[in-house]
Design a protein around this nucleic acid. Structure first.
Length: 803
RNA sequence: GCCGGAGUGGCGAAAUCGGCAGACGCACAGGACUUAAAAUCCUGGGAGGUAAAACUCGUACCGGUUCAAGUCCGGUCUCCGGCACCA
């Protein structure tokens, strides 16, 4: 029976809004629950059907929690700084703030039409000065604690646009937009010392409930390794420090490899015989992005430095030095000791350049490939006969005693490049004074607002467009009053998103980023859902900021998120990622117009395993619409007699209802929204077979369905004259003892092959069941004249007789 | 190259403390209702095989463990996502 979803949905959305049904209460005595979804970047394209998947999922959780009696904080905001708005501004000369405002308006109306139970009174926008005042404040705290600093860094530089590019904007070595040549250019960048928190970020993972794959990704990203620093000496007398995880193989070192950017190469330039060749190689590798180096380096390249040698500290042997771009300047010391016998990359390099291979761990065939497994040390003087781990220990001891090195822990994690030469971001609140150096903008002058500019294009030398506004740039030093200049770089988009969930707790606070009272109550976030693509950047950055804020006493716990889950992508009908160019984008507005928000929500959740990606299929939506039409028809099956009203569940449906309550209750907690809906469908089919439903059953059914399809369930509740609103009801309990049928069907197997099925009482014990099984006509035939070796009974499932 | 995830009907998918593979839905086919169509309702279905059964095969591929394997173990292939050759 079709229902008028248009009227019903707008009616209830208005009632919820007018009555502030979903506003979180500032009543800190009640049990709280804080579910969180990643807030969107409001792009000009509007929502696509992928957005509502996580929002609906946690909306279901939020609605269920409210029914369970919790004070719930579920809200949304806008991560609105970023490149697309800026590029749009450059092209069309429209202020990004105006574009952003329009986009937000569109996103908001789209989200509202889904009936999500967001507390809109707490909505935030990272580009509003009231918000970024506190982003800047956190930056100043980091600066104060020496966790923000400036450093020369390589950036991608488009030689034709004269713009710094993100890795993503570099495609095949050229600028994505203009096709110009991209080179690596040295530039001063603001950095945040996330590496100071590497160990804490690692340790914190033990305390939180994240999926294994997310913990693993973060662990791999942080990449702790233990090994040693070893000091080689050059024939010129300089110390060349290398980091190795295999100090046990030091006697197997055949050469050193330096990164092309290594500082010693400049220093040696007068002493290198083949300096032209070296310079050429360095220039070539400077053209490559990291990604390209990765691509191109399947075949190792490198150049030997002629005229300079290194001395191996353990045996004083003179060895060659090479440069190669498979060694990265940003990791370790930018120099490695090469042990071709026991490292595959070194092995390949050695084979190509005809370098000796010195075996120092026995067990493999180092002529065929590098041997990196465990073995006994050989050819290594005082290490001979030891295992790898013993040899590591002994070598480190030797290095330390002889001042030739030391034990060292290394992290792969690099510091966070925090500045952008862009307009549409938070201005970095620092003033450069010739006398006083880098001076923070005084806190009472925050927010340091973004000034208006006429042109959003960066300057020719790659400075932010802010550098062109002379009366903004030129200021007096807050310390000494001399002429000074403002920092013109802005912050990356990651800044605003690193702490937004704190602001939700107290969004209008003008004195603090949020009151301590509110933070104490709401934090930590109980359940945070987001995309896998944010696992190693956003998720790690925000944990870092949070831990920092904990250390300076701003937040009450040391981890921000108790639980993290991630959703799979919604793909186009063709199984590819949705994108305009592929023509497979689906707009949720169309679906809602045609089928309604409840159907849309249901299909988003029914489409498949929440954590797995799934292709969108506009034909399959019909099933969800049909289901809701049938739910609408339940009104007609309601037995309105007095008798019925007093009843508990009817005997026919009692078990089914208990089973379903249990299943829905558990499935929602376990992200199994698809099977929860399947269970509701199955129960509905059962009710339709019986053709009657009593009051308790209908009420229970509506409450169970409510988190998934909130509008239709409210409407039926109200039409049936049930008391109050469905949003004020209590989530149903189930009786564990009534979750299983008395009579169950079990399979009977002979040697693992099914030969019969029988119905038995679930409480019968093994011998009784096997007795009944053997009496079955098929079975008695089968086992006649055979020797029974084994009889197995799996309660409620099957009997297997082995003959 | 490395790391992570996944391969099950025509399609989306269920079932992983080893225990009846394919719940629920889409599409499809047949039937009912209708002048007719749409909508709705009922019925059907992994493949082969049979008049119908029996039976055989079947969860990417090869092998193993087990009374029993989609699920566990060893190896291989393919697809998707991420990446910083991390010494």
């Amino acid at each position: 029976m079709e229902y008028n979803f248009k009227d019903i949905e707008s009616k209830w959305q208005k009632i919820w809004e007018d009555n502030k049904v979903f506003e979180a209460k500032n009543d800190y005595s009640r049990p709280k629950y804080y579910p969180l979804v990643e807030f969107p970047y409001p792009s000009g394209k509007g929502l696509h059907v992928g957005h509502p998947r996580p929002y609906t999922a946690l909306d279901i959780v939020a609605r269920k929690r409210r029914l369970e009696g919790y004070n719930v904080l579920y809200t949304i905001g806008w991560d609105a700084f970023g490149l697309p708005a800026e590029n749009f501004a450059i092209k069309n000369k429209i202020h990004p703030a105006i574009v952003t405002k329009d986009n937000i308006k569109k996103f908001k109306s789209q989200l509202k039409s889904l009936g999500l139970s967001f507390d809109w009174s707490r909505e935030i926008d990272t580009t509003s000065p009231q918000y970024y005042k506190w982003t800047q404040w956190i930056f100043l705290k980091l600066f104060e604690k020496d966790l923000a600093y400036k450093k020369e860094m390589n950036v991608n530089w488009c030689t034709s646009c004269k713009v710094v590019l993100a890795n993503e904007e570099v495609v095949g070595g050229v600028c994505e937009r203009c096709g110009g040549q991209v080179v690596r250019k040295e530039k001063q960048q603001w950095m945040l010392k996330i590496t100071d928190y590497a160990q804490k970020l690692l340790d914190g993972l033990d305390k939180v409930r994240y999926p294994k794959k997310i913990k693993l990704s973060q662990q791999n990203w942080i990449g702790k390794s233990t090994g040693a620093s070893v000091f080689f000496e050059s024939s010129q007398g300089e110390k060349i420090e290398v980091y190795t995880t295999r100090p046990d193989t030091l006697f197997g070192v055949t050469h050193l490899v330096l990164a092309p950017e290594h500082e010693l190469i400049k220093k040696w330039s007068n002493n290198i015989n083949n300096i032209d060749e070296i310079k050429k190689y360095c220039q070539e590798s400077a053209k490559k992005s990291d990604f390209e180096r990765l691509e191109l380096n399947k075949e190792k390249t490198g150049v030997k430095i002629e005229g300079i040698k290194a001395i191996n500290p353990v045996n004083n042997k003179k060895i060659d030095i090479y440069i190669s771009d498979y060694v990265l300047v940003g990791y370790g010391t930018g120099a490695i000791m090469a042990v071709p016998a026991h490292d595959q990359r070194d092995w390949e390099f050695a084979k190509k350049y005809n370098i000796n291979i010195l075996e120092v761990v026995s067990g493999g065939d180092v002529n065929k490939q590098a041997f990196s497994e465990d073995g006994i040390i050989i050819n290594s003087e005082f290490l001979n006969g030891l295992s790898i781990s013993q040899a590591k220990e002994k070598m480190i001891e030797w290095l330390e005693n002889n001042k030739k090195g030391n034990a060292k822990t290394n992290f792969k994690l690099r510091d966070w490049v925090f500045s952008r030469q862009r307009y549409w971001g938070e201005p970095i609140p620092i003033i450069h004074c010739e006398k006083c150096g880098m001076v923070p903008v005084p806190e009472d002058q925050l927010p340091l607002e973004l000034p208006d500019v006429d042109n959003y294009q960066p300057t020719d030398d790659g400075q932010s467009p802010l550098a062109m506004i002379k009366d903004w740039v030129n200021v007096k030093c807050p310390v000494c009053g001399a002429d000074a200049k403002r920092e013109t770089d802005t912050m990356p988009q990651w800044a605003g998103s690193s702490w937004y969930f704190l602001r939700y707790c107290d969004p209008d606070n003008n004195k603090e980023l949020a009151s301590r009272e509110a933070l104490n109550y709401w934090l930590p976030v109980d359940w945070y859902n987001g995309g896998m693509e944010h696992t190693t950047l956003h998720l790690l950055y925000s944990r870092f900021w949070y831990k920092f804020l904990y250390d300076i006493g701003v937040v009450p716990t040391d981890e921000p998120y108790s639980r993290r889950t991630s959703h799979g992508l919604i793909l186009g009908f063709n199984g590819e990622k949705m994108s305009k160019s592929k023509g497979n984008v689906v707009n949720p507005d169309d679906i809602i117009n045609q089928y309604g928000a409840d159907t849309m929500r249901l299909y988003e959740m029914f489409i498949g395993d929440f954590e797995q990606s799934a292709p969108w299929n506009s034909d399959s939506i019909k099933g969800c619409k049909r289901f809701l039409d049938k739910v609408w028809g339940l009104q007609d099956l309601l037995d309105r007699s007095c008798e019925s009203n007093k009843k508990d569940f009817s005997s026919k449906l009692e078990i089914s209802f208990n089973k379903t309550i249990k299943k829905i209750t558990e499935d929602i907690e376990n992200l199994k929204f698809n099977t929860a809906i399947a269970a509701l469908m199955a129960l509905l089919n059962e009710i339709n077979n019986i053709k009657t439903i009593n009051q308790k059953e209908l009420k229970t059914y509506l409450i169970l369905l409510n988190p998934f399809a909130p509008h239709i369930t409210e409407e039926i509740w109200s039409i049936c004259n049930f008391e109050g609103y469905i949003t004020d009801q209590k989530w149903p309990d189930f009786d564990e003892s009534k979750c299983q049928d008395f009579v169950v069907q079990i399979a009977i197997q002979i040697n693992g092959k099914i030969k019969a099925r029988i119905d038995i009482n679930k409480d019968l014990d093994k011998s009784e069941v096997i007795k009944i099984a053997k009496e079955n006509i098929n079975i008695s035939e089968e086992i006649k004249n055979k020797i029974i070796k084994k009889e197995i009974y799996v309660p409620g499932k099957l009997v297997n007789i082995v003959v």
